[in-house]
Each structure stands twice: as C-alpha cells, then as structure tokens.
C-alpha cells in the first residue's frame, strides 16, 4: 500500500483533490510577509530554545531518548521524547494522533475540517490554528508561540528557507522528500522520531485493507483508473489508494500526477478499467453519463464508477490511518455491489 502523501508542487502533482492547490497558493504567497514573520518568529523561537534548551537536554538524559531520521532537507534529530508537537498539515496530525500523540496545535480550522475532512471532526484536542500556515506557508512566529519541541510538516508548508529558520531552534520534520511522500513511510519516520510504533500503525491499516479485500473477492486483481473531470478532459490523479482494495493500475493509469497526464473527453472510451474513480468538482457527471460510450465502459456496466466528492477525494489524496477508515467506509459498499455484479 503506497498511497501518496501531499504534494509539494503542482508541476509534480496534479491531483483531483482540493488539497494540492494549497501548494499553488504557497508558491504565490507574499514573500515579504514570510520574511518579516520569520524574523520575528526566529527571535521568539530563540527564546523558546534559550528557556527550554537545558531542560530538553536534561530530559534527554533523563529518559535516554534520542532519534534521528533523514528528512527532505537533511537529518532530523530529537534528543528528548517530543511532548509538544505542532502539526502543519492534517495528514501528519492524524498520523500523530493514531501514534498516540495529540499535537498541541494543528494548522487547520474547524470550518476546513467540517467541509473537507469530516472524519477528523472531534479527533484533535490541541488548538486548530490556521495562522500556523498563513497562505499555506509555515509561520515561525505562530509556531514559536506554542513552544513546541517538534514541528511536523511537509515540503509544501515548510520550504527549505523556512526549514533553515525553524530547525536551528526546534527539530523540524519537513517530510521525507520534496516530491510525494508515501503516508506509510511518513508514519514510520514519525514513529521513530516520537518513540512510537509507526510500523505497527502501518500494519494495522494494511490489515484494514486486507479485510476490505476479503469482501471483494471478484474485484481483487482488477484494474483501476482515477481521474478528475476537467473542462474538455479527464486528468489522472494518483490512484494508488485504490490498491488498498486489491486493485492494480490500468495500463494508461498515470500515478505520477504529471501535468500532461490526461485523456480528452473525446477519448472517454479509454477509461476502460474495471473500477473508475472520478473526482467531479465541476459537476460534469450528467454530461459524462450522457455520452453513449459511458454506459459501455466496464466500470459503468458493473456499477464500479466511484463519483468522489471533495471529502472522499481529500481522504484519498492525503491519506492517513483515519482517512483510510473514512474512504473504505464510504466506498466499500459500492465496490461490493460492483464485485457482486462482476462475480
């Protein structure tokens, strides 16, 4: 299971979800504000380090905990078991919660959770603070105000320059790579950094997928395609989350999220996988279904066309353990019906 984590750049990641567009916004964020905020934040963080540095070393000595992982910009080291973690994305926040660590602050808002991440409603006890990532870029000043001992984000909220400012004062995990991270690799890394069982968490989610597959005996091994409906074409998104159901990518399925990975609406008949997932943000479903070629698609005949709304698309795009629970619960009934049809 290698569902990808959130992406750092639209050129790398063109996904059906609303989530990656945050990165686009990041790119055009006001750099001057960032620099000013960073300068103030560094000062604040320096204060945090000055106040807590010695105690941190003492606790390191006390509990003997120390860990290091290779992050996107270099080694991330902690010398005491983190207790005040700031999460800069909902994905890492839900991974942390499932690892048994409640972040003291999460870069989100209740409105955002209600609209796009309903499965996370009530999950967090820490502060929901969108000002941690204004314009979707980490704000050192806001982060410093929580006096964290570990900051967890990804490369599209923690660009390398921001990382350089943060990491001198508080261990900062910016994800594993500047491209897409696999959520399970992130979970294992966070497990190491926090002294928790990341691999166990990954195994538990894998077990949930295996359980789902047992209910789809006639579908396992079938092919999938995952596209976003756009005007005039269908753009391939990263559909590796469908592998949780035992499916394999169709020959033309492009999980790289390349900007030119798309199929014209004229070529609808090329969307001929056993299971077709469509993120229909523009309300194109009626038009697609009106195409006489649609009803001839294998997925349409068996009822295996999955129309994803924004929450399900987000759950599949930036998955974590709880996201898996959500999209499995949302989609398994439809897939079971389709499997029965195919069987």
């Amino acid at each position: 299971m290698r569902a990808a984590a959130s992406c750092p750049h639209p050129a790398v990641r063109r996904t059906p979800s609303t989530r990656p567009r945050r990165k686009v916004v990041c790119d055009v964020a006001n750099r001057a504000n960032r620099i000013i905020a960073a300068a103030v934040g560094v000062t604040l963080l320096a204060g945090v380090a000055a106040c807590g540095g010695s105690s941190g070393e003492e606790s390191s000595g006390a509990d003997g905990f120390s860990a290091s992982v290779d992050g996107a910009y270099g080694a991330v080291e902690v010398h005491a078991r983190p207790e005040r973690v700031v999460a800069l994305s909902l994905q890492v926040a839900e991974i942390l919660v499932e690892l048994g660590i409640q972040p003291v602050a999460i870069a989100s808002s209740q409105d955002e959770i209600n609209e796009f991440y309903p499965w996370l409603d009530g999950v967090f006890t820490g502060d929901l603070d969108p000002e941690l990532t204004p314009n979707y870029v980490a704000d050192p000043e806001a982060i410093g105000s929580y006096e964290p001992d570990l900051v967890v984000g990804n490369t599209w909220t923690v660009a390398e320059d921001v990382y350089a400012q943060l990491d001198g004062f508080v261990p900062t995990f910016p994800g594993l790579a500047e491209a897409n991270d696999d959520w399970d690799a992130v979970a294992v890394a966070l497990g190491e950094l926090t002294g928790t069982d990341g691999q166990g968490l990954v195994d538990s989610v894998a077990a949930e997928c295996a359980a789902a597959q047992e209910r789809l005996p006639d579908l396992v091994g079938g092919t999938y395609q995952y596209v976003a409906a756009e005007e005039g074409q269908y753009r391939f998104g990263n559909g590796s989350w469908l592998e949780c159901f035992g499916l394999v990518p169709a020959d033309n399925q492009d999980n790289t999220q390349s900007t030119d990975a798309a199929v014209s609406e004229e070529l609808l008949d090329q969307l001929d996988a056993d299971v077709l997932a469509v993120f229909d943000r523009i309300g194109a479903r009626a038009d697609i279904e009106a195409d006489p070629r649609f009803e001839e698609l294998p997925s349409a005949t068996s009822g295996a066309v999955l129309w994803l709304d924004a929450p399900v698309a987000n759950a599949t795009n930036s998955p974590g353990p709880l996201s898996h629970d959500y999209f499995i619960a949302e989609l398994l009934p439809e897939l079971e019906s389709a499997a029965a049809e195919q069987g």
């Binding site: 686009v24 005007e231 005039g232």
Partner: peptide, 27 residues
C-alpha cells in the same frame, strides 16, 4: 481578483480554469 483567488484552494483552481480560456465542454 488575485486576492480573491488566493482566499481558498477551490477558488484558485476554479479561477485557474477560467483564466485558461476554453471552448471545450461548452454546451
């Protein structure tokens, strides 16, 4: 317009599509 576009990701994406200019999928 830029400020409005940056207000949330969905708006940015929709305006990005609008700004591209297309005659496809027009009934």
């Amino acid at each position: 317009i830029s400020a409005l576009m940056l207000s949330d990701p969905r708006s940015f994406d929709t305006m990005r599509n609008w700004n591209a200019g297309t005659v496809a999928s027009r009934e």
